[in-house]
Design a protein around this nucleic acid. Structure first.
Lengths: 337, 337
DNA sequence: CTGTTAGCGCGTTCAA
DNA sequence: TTGAACGCGCTAACAG
């Protein structure tokens, strides 16, 4: 294996000089820089990131912490996009990232986890989809030993950046559009429309925000709103729609999967009411064709998250980053490849 | 940070002794082992895997190499299961794994890639879904610098293990079942049944095997078979079914996604013919309800792959591992959560 | 069975 | 501006 030493010898300079050009340090003549670069090219040298990490302490390593559902599911694509976006960005910024699932941390105490990350040379953690139940992770955040980027959760501090769309606004928009689009459809004598909102899991941070947006839309449109919690479960949403969906005019769901559950319930009840979802997963194109939903660019979100992680590693302070979203109508034609 | 030195001091032994108990070396008294372990616990010591990797060369690090489609898709769940299964196993065996996508390697020569892995301290690579086009990866395999575990591709050598189901057998079984189940349905005067096989991508290693299985089933059942290549694309399969699907009695597809494309085509043509798929993705439960398909346990396959990687790292020789599969009938009830 | 010691490849002072 | 030397935390001979 060709090491920095070989490069130094080949270029006729000292090891430290090579190191300096490698890391873009100032105070190196262009001439020597050229010599070194040439030697690097000639020897086909690649710095050993392991050794670099050991030596410089701040390994620049980050961990991607995900909590996907264990069973094969349609929402897997969300996590896939997260991983893709994050790893692409990490590669681009030349920081190495390890992927961790919550399940791998099961049964560990906060201390265990801290030690685990430390042993892995991780100093920065990107958390995708934190819920309020995750004490251990929240402890991690509190400890402030690690830099953190948190997706879809309201944490901002010196070492913590939060990334995500404006949940309330997005929910507001899709609900508003879905409801108002359907007002003409209704009999004017019908009275105020009734809307069923199937919210997500109460412990998820996004749920409160989305519910807020839903309420705002309901108020502005002067419709009567009832709220149930579907816990992001398709079958629960299906059950809820089975029971109370028939007499509602419109069903707004806090996730696509729940929207599909609701649609299938309505189908079984042999009634039709507009339903809208949230997330923009492909499955909507197959099952909930032409349904309104919020489209998040998970790839881009993850990309940004890693970029923010880099910012933190560079010593900048945590901040809040709001990502854009779109309201779309899912069509089979758009998703088929 | 508490290091091995601190532990040694605290336990009143030499550094190397600590290292030995850490790595389960022989020749250590139970007494001293206990002392060391106690010190470790008291100091809350965690070995630094970076340093260990640097020192021992064979870092025990593996790379998971995946080639997911870039766009959000229903097959993401396959890759998700791969990653989950692999990382779970890696955690269990205490080897650290990095996830790499083909896209991150784009534009690199074989040498670049070799150097990249080397710089990452990777000595073992698990490749998921290699196609014959991937010259670079095949070079990697040829070079024999790395240990390799290859999923769904026919490579076995001293340092290479192959893992996957019996593609031919699986395709044979699902085709046989689907065809024979439907023989009674047909008018006896109808003559031999006609079967359309929509195969995958010609450059994929599994395609040849599956086609072989299909041919065997067709022969045994004495049906007339025509083969088209859908390249694993839903829309291509849809197009093929649009053109030639109408006059066929049965359509056998080499992937679920293609099966769904075919079903949608038939629906549009307003004819019904049995269709079967391959893979067992969730989407089948939504769209292709009650369709036959081959179910692969991708989680388990990845798990096994990592276990095999470990075997190789331990110096054992490469081998072929055949994973089990099932023929199932996908139902919405089974996949809803 | 235990301790001493020499690196692993690199970043980083501190002199020169 | 450059280079020699030390140390990061650990493993692996080797000596005791």
């Amino acid at each position: 294996m060709v090491s920095i030493k070989d490069v130094a010898k080949h270029a006729g300079v000292a090891i430290s000089t090579v190191s300096k050009v490698l890391n873009n340090y100032p105070n190196v003549t262009d001439a020597t820089k050229a010599k070194v670069n040439q030697a690097i090219r000639e020897l086909n040298y690649v710095p050993n990131s392991i050794a670099a990490a050991l030596s410089s302490k701040h390994s620049g390593r980050i961990a991607l912490l995900l909590d996907p559902v264990r069973e094969t599911q349609a929402v897997d694509q969300i996590y896939m996009q997260y991983i893709l976006g994050a790893l692409d960005c990490a590669k681009e910024l030349d920081i190495d990232a390890i992927t961790i699932f919550f399940s791998m941390l099961e049964g560990m105490t906060s201390d265990d986890i801290t030690r685990y990350f430390r042993s892995q040379g991780v100093h920065t953690i990107v958390v995708f989809g934190l819920s309020q139940e995750d004490r251990v992770i929240r402890n991690l955040i509190q400890e402030e030993e690690f830099h953190m980027v948190v997706i879809d959760a309201p944490f901002v501090a010196d070492g913590i950046t939060s990334v995500g769309i404006d949940q309330a606004e997005a929910q507001y928009e899709v609900a508003y559009k879905t409801i108002s689009d359907n007002i003409p459809r209704l009999d004017p004598k019908h009275g105020p429309q009734t809307v069923l909102y199937i919210a997500g899991k109460g412990t998820s941070y996004v749920t409160a925000d989305r519910t807020k947006g839903m309420k705002k839309a309901a108020e502005e449109l002067n419709v009567s709103l009832s709220i149930r919690y579907g816990d992001f479960s398709e079958s629960k949403a299906r059950g809820i729609a089975m029971i109370t969906g028939k007499e509602k005019d419109i069903i707004v769901c806090a996730s696509d999967l729940m929207a599909i559950g609701a649609v299938n319930a309505l189908r079984e009840l042999e009634v039709f009411h507009p339903v809208c979802g949230f997330d923009g997963i492909t499955l909507m194109g197959y099952v909930g064709n032409q349904m309104n939903t919020v489209q998040q660019d998970f790839y881009d979100i993850a990309n940004t998250a890693v970029r923010e992680a880099k910012r933190l590693m560079d010593g900048e302070k945590g901040r809040q980053v709001v990502m854009p979203h779109k309201i779309i109508r899912m069509k089979y034609q758009d998703i088929i490849k």
